[in-house]
Amino acid sequence: MSRIPKILFFALIVRPVVLFVLGLNKRGMNNLPQNGPAVLAANHNSHLDTLVLMSLYPLSALHKLRPVAAADYFFRNAILKWFALSCIGIVPLDRTGETDREKLFAPCHEALDQGDILILYPEGSRGKPEERGRLRKGLFYLLKERKATPITPVLMNGLGYVLPKGEALIVPYCCDVIIGRAIKAESNPKQFIEHLSNSFDELEQYCLSKELR
């Protein structure tokens, strides 16, 4: 797939917006995995989350970043589909529950096998603005057979204020992006969720604007 639309989109639109309209308080940048296979597990409040996470990487590494995104949402029309595939490079995930687990995760495994870095939101969807939702177990089942894959927790704060679900107006705001140390998949889903949830709690103290709205 051509890398050019993606690079242009990030160089000309995403990066200037992130720099000027957002302004990030970045912590723990050296925890960011440079090579795949790896997983970034972040909290999800806004469409901007994915763009901000991808903007943390140099333009030359963009093609390795693969956000896992809902197929029903991003493939609902041709323009959005082209955008999702060419400008972002998503790995489509079927949310209908009709595909069995093996098949469901096949595109994710394919991406990990070729050394990509998956971006995943364990909360599932964007949820209420600036509130952390319940973590789901999908990530555990994805990595069940890949226990060595490092999972890097990333906590973002403020993006649900800039552009919450269901809004079109972007309001400038300085956001926090706090990257934690990588964790590994546990032996059972409950333990794993707890571990990940604790990591997020720990990262919260580094946020500059602590008051989540």
């Binding site: 302004g23 603005p129 600036e130 403020g158 204020y161 919450p164 809004e167 107006l169 309001v171 705001y173 300085c174 956001c175 500059l208 604007s209 008051e211 709205r213």
Partner: peptide, 12 residues
């Protein structure tokens, strides 16, 4: 406005 808390309702 990022460090001083305001309400979510104040976005607009």
């Amino acid at each position: 406005l990022s460090i001083v808390p305001t309400r979510f309702a104040d976005r607009r």
